[in-house]
């Protein structure tokens, strides 16, 4: 049986020499955590099942490139590496794969031009294409949207693009299904309501998406305690849990989270 995966996520600002890992709160304020490949190596040593790098550089001037980050990381880290943030063409994807990435994530570019998913998955295989969805809860019933029943009432989920700065009106569940049809190998599902809040994963969102797809779903947003991972694995079909702050600021190690899960009979790689 496959283990549930624990994936540290490194949001990288490449506007400084060597780059730096940053962490936003609710997609805004920034705290600093360290040099990308040093953090990646630390999490690898702790037992991370995969590492995700997202380029969130705001400035146009880059003092380092994701290629450098991946090359350097792959000398020390022997688990799959995923790269995303601003990949908007087959060429950009190729650059990431050539640098040593095993998978790339697509977000804004895929929503603007869905065929990009097919182009990359045909060239590199479904398993290499992760479609990232940033979903925001919208209260109330809306015609044509996939409506979820919550304790608080009905809601649907809207996809945002440009790192949460723009909303699209697109139904996140419908988009996830479309992405799967187009050849996505995985969905990285981030709850914008939970991201950076430390309140735990959005269980109804993760449950709804994972139940409507055949491909693995990576839950993201809001993880601050291994119990949040336990809850998302216990109550949804998520294949993996992605987290950032919980690891960056030494609150928990990957190893600590996995022991917590193993004690509660969640299959993890120890």
């Amino acid at each position: 049986m496959l283990a549930r995966r624990i994936i540290p996520c490194l949001d990288c600002d490449l506007g400084v020499p060597q780059g730096r890992v940053v962490k936003g709160i609710e997609f805004k304020q920034i705290r600093y955590a360290g040099i990308p490949w040093e953090l990646a190596a630390r999490y690898y040593e702790q037992g991370a099942d995969e590492i995700v790098f997202l380029d969130i550089t705001a400035s146009h001037e880059r003092r380092t490139t994701m290629t450098d980050v991946i090359r350097k990381t792959s000398e020390e880290v022997f688990v799959p590496l995923t790269v995303g943030g601003g990949i908007s063409s087959l060429d950009a994807a190729r650059t990431a794969f050539n640098a040593g990435a095993d998978k790339i994530t697509l977000n804004t570019a895929a929503l603007l031009r869905p065929e990009l998913i097919s182009e990359i998955s045909q060239a590199y295989g479904n398993q290499a294409v992760v479609v990232a969805i940033d979903a925001k809860r919208r209260c109330g019933h809306e015609e044509g949207k996939t409506v979820i029943q919550l304790l608080e009432g009905e809601c649907w989920f809207e996809c945002s693009i440009y790192g949460g700065r723009k909303f699209t009106g697109i139904d996140a569940l419908a988009w996830a299904r479309r992405a799967e049809e187009l050849g996505a190998g995985e969905i990285l599902l981030t709850s914008m309501d939970r991201d950076g809040t430390y309140d735990g994963f959005d269980i109804p969102l993760t449950d709804a998406v994972s139940r409507s797809l055949q491909i693995p779903v990576i839950a993201s947003g809001g993880c601050a305690h291994p119990d949040h991972m336990y809850q998302v694995f216990r109550h949804t079909g998520a294949s993996a849990a992605l987290a950032a702050s919980i690891f960056h600021f030494n609150e928990w190690t990957v190893e600590g989270c996995k022991s917590y899960l193993a004690e509660r009979n969640i299959a993890v790689r120890i």
């Binding site: 496959l2 283990a3 479904n126 190998g185």
Partner: peptide, 10 residues
């Protein structure tokens, strides 16, 4: 089964 098999198996 999910195809491809992708992940850590024992």
């Amino acid at each position: 089964m999910m195809v491809p098999q992708m992940g850590w198996n024992d």
